[in-house]
Write a protein that binds this DNA or RNA. Structure first.
Lengths: 213, 213, 213, 213
DNA sequence: AATGAATGAGTTTTCATTCAT
DNA sequence: GATGAATGAAAACTCATTCAT
């Protein structure tokens, strides 16, 4: 009887992760309100009932997506080993990483965008996100101190402000790329444009941080 | 019953602008997909039928909202008279204006956010938005040239990249404020935090632009 | 003040007949339920309020359209002078007239079609339509009697049945033309096809009526 | 509560066919534009949502109704076995069948009427309707040839024209029955009137086809 | 007589969620 | 664990008709 039907592998983890991946795509593409449960079920190769089986409702599913997205970038960041680098190199590395990560994970930007529309209400409910980020700020602080003691960097820099600025410079350019391109009548999505952007961002941050010799 | 309540008075322009104002609020609060036509009608003091009478459908209404939002910031920017200021002051003024405008017009940020989710598909259809922005870039270019010829600014700065960066530094901080506050466990919405942010942004931009003396 | 506005000729009869003509087109194209008051107003060059001024509502307007359509064909039929012709010629003339009229007045067929969907509820309310048609049947009866007394036609033919058959042969072909063409995969709307149809219909009716010599 | 009432029983085919039957009734009664999705849902014992689950929208549902209606008459026609009869009897049988079928399936006439108003746009999209009909024309052609070779029928008769005429004679009388009765002031819907009509139609067709002996 | 803005009631369509198997 | 049919509530959108000018 079941020969013609789908594998139906009864594999809990696999089904769950397929749903999560499908939900990530759908929410990233359409936003929270625009995403369709039906579409997520289709994309996952599973069915609607399973979404509700593993995640209770649309909101919880979105939260799971956000947590997963944060976990992914967190894991990537933890591979940076910034403290093994010279201060200037560490900053360059952080900028480049941020830029590349956003570039390769447009869904992350779009999910954040969506979450912002909802005043971070989902993220706020999460226990997993959060605290770890202080580690990144601590690391950045250490880099700033080292740079300052080596007479390379200016003093009085708030590492959180700096981190936000570094993120901002990449995020805004990429997240608003379509809008900016339309409004300014210049394609900001070409390879050349992107190379220039990375250079510009590095110039800005280091131009600000580094003392005149 | 009073003059200020229901339109009813057969005033085309008034009805239209009440609807547009209501739509701006609703779309900014809920995003495109999350916004409700019914709610917009209520907020406007008019009724659903009128929305469709003046704007053909939800998409066109959203486009009208975007165009209106752009027109508003455009009008404000045109009052800046940046070229009447010294280069350094002009940059400060631009940063401050951008920051203040975004601060006072959170709906603008949210509308842009929404439009980004839709790959700028509405803005793209607009003939009104667009071209004027080049004027701002021209102005910024002129400021950079002046600053450079006065030996104040570094050379080789792309005015569009700079403008995007200035916008980015304010936009990201404000647009992602809730998310950032949640993730980093620090309230970035206090008056003090905002003063610090404006200072930081000015430091970054001028630190980058200005030559060491 | 009024220089820019439309003629606004304040011509009762003209406005009324423009509305009627517009309504005829719209009802014929879309049927009763599918017709749009708004569209009729546009087509008429007048405005919605006028429709309700001259005709009380959609139903009454449709009735007026039907009556007008019947009056038009009635006027045309009264020009036939069938009794001036030989019996055989009279029949030929009636067939040809019916065919040509339907061909040149597709809106008449479509209006009848629509009315049939509504079980003739509008026509039934009309006092104008109706009685005159007996005159046509009387005429046809006279033709049949003459033909019979001249040993040309068979006897015992009900003139109403015959009239219905003559109308049917044209009506069905033209009214269902699109459907028949689609279903039988043969374009029944070409000039050649139409010529053949007229010949066939004449053959059928006269083949039936005329006695073998 | 009883087995015959609400579907609910998760029976795909049953639900689908109940919806189709309900839609057939509603569309036949009210035409396409006049039909109400809500009413169809009620008549079907199901709910609006299911209509959209199985048929995507009103147009597709109507197409399904048309295809089903054609399939029904097609199935009936295929039971006629006209080629087993003598030519004259075969023609009589076809006329009688057509008449009886239209008489017993007024919804078929009304659906066709409606489709004609829409210029066959739904039928045109169908792949199922169509080709089979040529079979009927082929059969009719064979009958005509036989009749001719037996010196019973005249030659040069186009089977498609003849079929259209046979259909026309029944269709117009029944489809326009209300209108004709109103216009001519004679009830054409009585049993007696119907018997006379069938006789008249048979007389016409055979009077045309048959050679004088 | 003429105009077009305003409206309530309805109509199609969509959606997250639940239920029977 | 898995499936997809079933559903109520709500959403976008439409329409004939009326009202103020």
């Amino acid at each position: 009887m079941s020969e013609t039907s789908k594998p139906q592998t009864r594999n809990k983890e696999r089904t769950q992760s397929l749903i999560l991946a499908a939900a990530t795509e759908e929410f990233a593409e359409k936003g929270f309100a625009g995403a369709r449960i039906e579409k997520i079920a289709e994309r996952s190769g599973s069915n609607k009932r399973m979404l509700y089986y593993y995640y209770q409702n649309k909101e919880d599913l979105f939260l799971a997506v956000m947590e997963s997205a944060y976990k992914t970038i967190r894991d990537a960041e933890s591979e940076l080993h910034l403290l093994d680098l010279q201060p200037v190199e560490a900053i360059r590395r952080l900028i480049t990483f941020t830029w590349d990560y956003y570039l390769q994970h447009p869904e992350f930007l779009r999910l954040l965008n969506t979450e912002n529309l909802y005043h971070a209400e989902h993220i706020r409910r999460s226990k997993n996100i959060g605290f770890y980020n202080s580690k990144l700020i601590d690391t950045l602080n250490e880099i700033l101190i080292r740079g300052q003691s080596e007479k390379l960097f200016r003093g009085g820099v708030d590492p959180l402000q700096l981190y936000i600025s570094i993120a901002a410079l990449s995020y805004f350019y990429l997240s608003n790329n379509d809008t900016l391109s339309a409004v300014f009548g210049r394609d900001l999505n070409t390879p050349k444009a992107k190379v220039e952007r990375l250079q510009h961002m590095t110039d800005i941050v280091l131009g600000y941080l580094m003392l005149c010799s």
